[in-house]
Design a protein around this nucleic acid. Structure first.
Length: 475
DNA sequence: GCATGATCATGC
DNA sequence: GCATGATCATGC
């Protein structure tokens, strides 16, 4: 590595702050034309070279080895929920052959990323990378103690899979904050050797999940307050895993009806038929006010809480919905950066299962378990996503049949896993022949051909959810 | 009985 | 008023 004058954290950060003050766009820092290559140039390298004045290294040492600082450049954006990280923070390729024998402290992740100089820039849709610029410089030199305990648990989960000869089964949804994300040219071409199996494993890198980056961004870069934690005493994490602690909260209530649980928790049982009783009871069991997905650990780890009612054969009464999407957005995204991937593949799930024989019965809490999509199902989901994009690109084939609008989006019968269905307040369309149904401005969004269709979302098929629950029951 | 279009209820 | 989780309801 070349000599650098930046040998202390202070000098690295001072130079970083000068960059913030100077507001120099990436285009002007790009001294060797890295951005011209399809705009995909590595911003970290551009800044190391064009601002710190030394050639980027790709070895195992942090970028500023003597200072012990790794330089990372990361985009953020504003959403209706406030400021959010736009991407996961990719740290370092996982060398399966070497990492398997390490400890957390000697791991490539900790060696490189225990101290990060985080350069943030605001990402704006439609603006070229050349014109964006770093506007915050933050030294991340210690993780919150309760987070670090979870990150260590994450690292153990990744390493245990490698040690079990299952590096090819790694997935982002396996872990909470620290994840093994795919890295390299579209999957197929980048496989690596793993130590305890002959099967090649997809190249992956240590990364901090987008949701966790949002947490760090809000806390350290923008100095915002924190969300309510589910685990009130972080010391519990020293002796039990996050999953164990959460699942234990449900144990006292297994086998009880929602009415009995409501009684025990001192909840009013006003209307047992309301659509949301099961969700309300789940919230109270977790001891949180409001939406579980907004509790700190769940939000930071991208964990979705799903309550399901099943019959005696584990068959859900309904398919499982996901957040709605807009048609033009889904055409704009790439698979591994898409909302669908984020919500269904990179996400972890806490399934809370209630059971009843028939609709007259009050549901009984049967089980709670964590789940994430196994790698063998990911390609199937991607196919549904691809079909959805194709349909949308062709205006979804909207046609009015006996007062109901039909479309060509993927149906439940076309996949064992998922389908696409409406998800809006009311049905709403603006059809090519001028027909307007409902209130398109509220409940629909535009297709590329100018028609408007009721807002839709992805759904897990009932049978797919059934198979998930049946498998969890066996364990 | 299931698939699919449509809608309700809650939290923010 | 909107986003989201969850459920209803009709036609085949």
């Amino acid at each position: 590595m070349e000599e650098t004058m930046y040998t202390t954290k202070e000098s690295v950060m001072r130079r970083a702050q000068e960059l913030v003050d100077a507001k120099i766009p990436f285009g002007a820092l790009d001294v060797s034309g890295r951005l011209s290559d399809n705009n995909k140039g590595d911003l970290g390298q551009i800044i190391e070279e064009g601002w710190y004045g030394y050639r980027p290294n790709s070895d195992a040492e942090p970028d500023f080895a003597e200072a012990g600082v790794e330089l990372k450049v990361s985009p953020y954006k504003y959403t209706r929920n406030g400021v959010s990280a736009k991407e996961r923070l990719v740290c370092d390729i996982i060398n399966y052959m070497e990492e398997a024998e390490k400890t957390f402290e000697t791991s490539a992740f900790w060696h490189k990323c225990k101290c990060i100089c985080l350069l943030s820039y605001q990402w704006l849709k439609g603006v070229a990378k050349e014109d964006m610029f770093v506007d915050h410089a933050t030294l991340l030199n210690k993780y919150p103690v309760e987070d670090l305990l979870i990150i260590k648990q994450d690292w153990e989960i990744i390493i245990q899979k490698i040690r079990a000869g299952e590096a090819h089964l790694l997935s982002e949804g396996d872990t909470m904050y620290l994840a093994a994300c795919t890295k390299g040219p579209t999957a197929e071409t980048s496989y690596r050797q793993q130590p305890y199996s002959d099967l090649p494993a997809k190249q992956r890198a240590y990364s901090l999940k987008t949701t966790y980056m949002t947490h760090l961004l809000r806390k350290y870069v923008f100095g915002e307050g924190e969300d309510e934690h589910i685990i009130k005493d972080w010391r519990l994490l020293k002796t039990a895993s996050f999953d164990e602690i959460i699942l234990n909260m449900f144990s006292p209530y297994l086998g009880l009806s929602t009415r009995e649980i409501a009684d025990r928790l001192g909840m009013a049982w006003e209307d047992g038929t309301a659509k949301s009783v099961n969700a309300s009871v789940t919230r109270r069991i977790l001891g949180i006010i409001g939406d579980p997905d907004r509790a700190a650990e769940f939000k930071n780890a991208n964990i979705a809480v799903k309550t399901i009612v099943v019959d005696g054969n584990n068959m859900p009464e309904q398919a499982m919905s996901f957040p709605s999407f807009t048609f033009l957005d889904i055409l704009d995204q790439e698979w591994e950066d898409s909302d669908v991937y984020d919500q269904m593949v990179a996400s972890r799930f806490l399934f809370v299962v209630f059971e009843r024989e028939d609709k007259e019965q009050i549901p009984v809490l049967r089980q709670a378990f964590f789940w994430n999509m196994p790698v063998e199902d990911i390609e199937e989901l991607r196919q549904v996503w691809v079909k959805t994009r194709i349909a949308i690109r062709h205006g979804a084939g909207l046609r009015l049949v006996k007062g109901i609008v039909r479309n060509t989006l993927p149906k439940a019968a076309e996949s064992y896993l998922a389908h696409v269905r409406p998800h809006a307040g009311r049905a709403a369309y603006r059809l090519a022949n001028g027909t307007i149904i409902g209130d398109p401005d509220t409940d629909a969004n535009p297709l590329p051909d100018g028609q408007w269709m009721t807002t839709q979302c992805f759904w897990f098929n009932k049978k797919y959810t059934q198979s998930i629950i049946a498998r969890a029951k066996e364990l």
